[in-house]
Amino acid sequence: MSKESTRLNSIQRLAKLKPVIQRRNKLLHSIRKFFTKESFIEIETPVIIDAPLPEPNIEAISTDNGFLRTSPEAMLKACLAAGYEKIFEIGPCFRKEERGRLHREEFSMLEWYQVNVDSTQLISFTKNLLIHCAVELNGHSKINYLDKTVDLNSDWEIISLKDAFAKFANLTLEESVGKNRFELDLLDKIEPNLPQNKPIIITDYPAKFRAFAKLKDSDNTLADRWELYIAGVEISNTYSELVEPCEIRKLISQFQQERKKLKMKDYPLPAIFMEAIKAGIPKSAGSALGIDRLLMLLTSSNSIEDVKI
């Protein structure tokens, strides 16, 4: 009896999702159209992998003999090392125990890489991509998200974290990182105060939060990395890739130590990534964008559960 009623509820949910799933289909189609026009090739890399990149703060879900990927980053960078120049992938990624309005353990990611560009060159590319998708889906470049309106065609404001802290917080970026409260301050003091009427690009993350980004040439305490916020939603993460082999190896060992300290799972070395490093990853930049969140913005949906089966 109860089994039957749960099943009915799931079916009802699917039926309710149908209009948004139709729009999701249109969004995926428009993304593919854009990348094809830009001469990118779509790649499908394995979802089950031997070892995830040992990033601090991201935990992978284990399978019987491997892991579900947390992102396609390692494999796509291996493709760069193998001579692919402009590549993108759309597909599911998995992050253990991430559940909330903007998070789900299984979510859909768009990730793309291009050789011979840096992260700032991907700003106008991202802008063109999002305008293209919005126009294809809604017929205009405006995002009406919940009670906010953002025109993707307006000037995107670029704010460095250092300036954002100076403007909105009662402590400096260095103090916040030093006191181990960066995430909290970002959430409480910075994010709520960001302008909500235009897309915002936050740049210059502290080196501690670099992931596999290269450090800035002008300041090696900062990562050459930016994040896009639209209507208060963190939508994509972009960096100039770290390609220097010794530095990457050092970083992997440093991240492994950090993970150990945080009592996170011990991963085997990501063999394909180590091979890519050895073969040489070319100068490149890449971006990861949450497709579910983009669809939330384009359909004014409150939660990831409202846009994904």
Binding site: N57, H103, F209
Partner: peptide, 30 residues
């Protein structure tokens, strides 16, 4: 009230609004 947050590739934050079961007072905890 409960919200899972993970800003800027940092650590996850679990933000809660909680209500005291004895006196009904509320507060926030992260």
């Amino acid at each position: 009230e409960f919200e899972f947050c993970k800003p800027g590739k940092g650590t996850a934050l679990y933000r809660c609004k909680v209500k005291n079961l004895i006196n009904g007072s509320t507060m926030e905890r992260t």
